[in-house]
């Protein structure tokens, strides 16, 4: 008996309800029609091609997808693109200077060997930048830095070098 044939014709257009959104991504105005259920992480990666934002667990645990939404760190996998309408979103692509020279925090990660495979790094960087910009006092003790990065999982470094990188960057940026 022959098996059922794989459906030859896939639908060309999703049957999902859609919503029109307009937002700012890395300083550029973006407007799009997106599925209501499209996650911000998927919108950034698949619609805008900004693949620097990584997707790990898709339920808010790993922190790899962290971006800045109106200046503060948020999980792009726990935010619908529709919710980000009217917001200013910043991703890892906006962190280095236009000429390719690195941000002091990126420099510090390189200097201190704060990454190995690099999968968690964009989320780490965006989260740490959010803490650097926060009105909350910056605690640069080991415990304080561990608290800052506690929402970002790294499976390579053992975190020690990331802690060193955060401290070096804060010093370079005259923070704390």
């Amino acid at each position: 008996m022959s098996r059922a044939k794989i459906r030859a014709k896939l639908p060309t257009k999703s049957a999902d309800p859609t919503v029109d959104i307009e937002l700012t991504v890395n300083g550029e105005r973006v407007s799009a029609e997106v599925s209501t259920r499209m996650l911000l992480s998927d919108f950034l990666r698949h619609e805008l091609g900004l693949t620097g934002t990584h997707v790990g667990c898709e339920h808010g645990v790993c922190g790899a997808c962290t971006v800045l939404i109106n200046g503060v760190a948020g999980r792009s996998c726990l935010t619908f693109a529709a919710q980000a309408a009217g917001c200013e979103v910043r991703t890892i692509e906006s962190v280095a200077n236009k000429d390719g020279t690195l941000h002091p925090l990126q420099e510090a990660f390189r200097d201190c060997h704060g990454l190995q495979c690099g999968y968690c790094t964009p989320g780490m960087i965006m989260n740490i930048l959010s803490s650097f910009n926060s009105s909350a006092p910056l605690d640069l003790s080991d415990e304080g830095i561990r608290d800052i990065i506690s929402g970002n999982l790294c499976r390579c470094t053992g975190y020690q070098n990331i802690i060193a990188a955060v401290r070096q960057a804060a010093k370079a940026m005259s923070l704390g």
Binding site: G60, G63, T66, I69, V72, A73, G74, R75, L78, T79, N127, S130, S131, I148, S150, G151
Partner: peptide, 9 residues
């Protein structure tokens, strides 16, 4: 309560 990025939103 969770972590700062979660508490932010």
């Amino acid at each position: 309560v969770a972590h700062v990025p979660i508490r932010n939103r």
